[in-house]
């Protein structure tokens, strides 16, 4: 499973980082989402899906798990 961010939509709510800091961070310039490795480590899929559903801007999406469109 991969997770992707549309940085043009991201406004820096940082809800993703609150929920799954293992995958999401925010930059030190604008506080926008940074995904160091879009490949989600095994075991974190549910947390990542929860982070995606909690983005108020709809800027995140998962790909390649058969549940979210790529």
């Amino acid at each position: 499973m991969r997770v992707l961010v549309d940085i043009s939509r991201c406004q820096g709510h940082a809800r993703c980082e609150d929920i799954c800091p293992e995958v999401f961070a925010t930059d030190a310039i604008e506080g926008k989402c940074v995904i160091a490795d879009p490949q989600v480590p095994p075991g974190l899929e549910d947390k990542v899906r929860l982070a995606v559903r909690n983005c108020p801007e709809g800027a995140l999406r998962v790909a390649g798990d058969g549940k979210g469109g790529a």
Partner: peptide
């Protein structure tokens, strides 16, 4: 916005 944002990021 770009002037203020770095001072209020989660890291800051």
């Amino acid at each position: 916005r770009r002037l203020l944002a770095p001072m209020f990021t989660p890291i800051a």
